[in-house]
Simulated assay, not measured.
Amino acid sequence: MSTDAFTVLAEPTRRRILDALRAADRSVNELVDGLGVSQPAVSKHLRVLREAGFVSCRVAARQRIYRLDPGPLRAVDCWLDPYRELWSQHLDALEQHLDSQEQ
């Protein structure tokens, strides 16, 4: 992957594209219609997502159909895991504190 996953995900339109592809594979035109973004902009973002491994595409007749590839998202999820554990510990401590205040 040539681009850092967090750099790719920092762009709101790219996140919206990933959200749309989470529901179903889509053509560029379906993404344009659903997102209300110009075709050149969607194509530019899809290229970045494809180069970073977040999406793949296949040709069907005269259309390119894009599909979400969860691999890079798994890497982000793994990176976030220790932070989830940290938050869980803090939330458990907060819960204990609040429970002690009720008594």
Rank of each mutant, 00 (worst) to 15 (best):
R14V: 05
R14N: 02
R14F: 00
R14E: 07
R15H: 00
R16W: 08
R16F: 09
R16L: 14
R16H: 13
R16Y: 09
I17C: 08
I17S: 09
I17K: 08
D19W: 08
D19N: 10
A20S: 14
L21H: 01
L21C: 01
L21R: 00
R22K: 09
R22W: 11
R22M: 12
A23V: 11
A23N: 04
A23T: 10
A23L: 09
A23K: 09
A23R: 10
A24S: 15
A24N: 14
A24P: 07
D25F: 01
D25A: 15
D25M: 05
R26T: 13
R26E: 14
R26Y: 06
V28I: 15
V28C: 08
V28P: 00
E30F: 01
L31I: 13
L31S: 06
L31C: 06
L31E: 10
L31F: 06
V32Q: 06
V32I: 07
V32R: 07
D33K: 03
D33Q: 07
D33T: 04
G34Q: 06
G34F: 01
G34S: 05
L35A: 03
G36C: 05
G36H: 07
G36V: 12
G36L: 05
V37K: 14
V37M: 08
V37D: 06
S38Q: 02
S38V: 03
Q39K: 14
Q39W: 08
Q39A: 13
Q39G: 07
Q39V: 12
P40N: 02
P40W: 02
P40E: 04
P40F: 03
A41C: 08
A41L: 13
V42P: 01
V42C: 02
S43T: 15
K44V: 08
K44A: 10
H45D: 11
H45M: 01
L46G: 11
L46F: 11
L46W: 08
R47P: 12
R47V: 10
V48I: 10
V48E: 06
V48F: 01
L49Q: 06
L49W: 07
L49D: 12
R50W: 00
R50P: 03
E51K: 15
E51H: 15
E51W: 14
A52F: 13
A52H: 08
A52Q: 05
G53I: 01
F54P: 00
F54R: 00
F54W: 03
F54S: 00
F54A: 00
V55T: 15
V55Q: 10
S56L: 07
S56V: 09
S56I: 03
S56Q: 08
S56K: 11
C57I: 02
C57G: 13
C57M: 09
C57E: 13
C57V: 05
C57T: 09
R58C: 04
R58F: 00
A60H: 11
A60N: 11
A60S: 14
A61M: 10
A61P: 00
A61L: 14
R62K: 11
R62S: 09
R62E: 13
R62L: 10
R62T: 12
Q63C: 08
Q63L: 10
R64I: 07
R64F: 06
Y66C: 10
Y66H: 15
R67K: 09
R67L: 08
R67I: 04
R67N: 09
L68E: 06
L68R: 04
L68G: 02
L68C: 02
D69S: 13
D69W: 05
P70L: 07
G71A: 13
P72G: 02
P72I: 02
P72Q: 04
P72W: 10
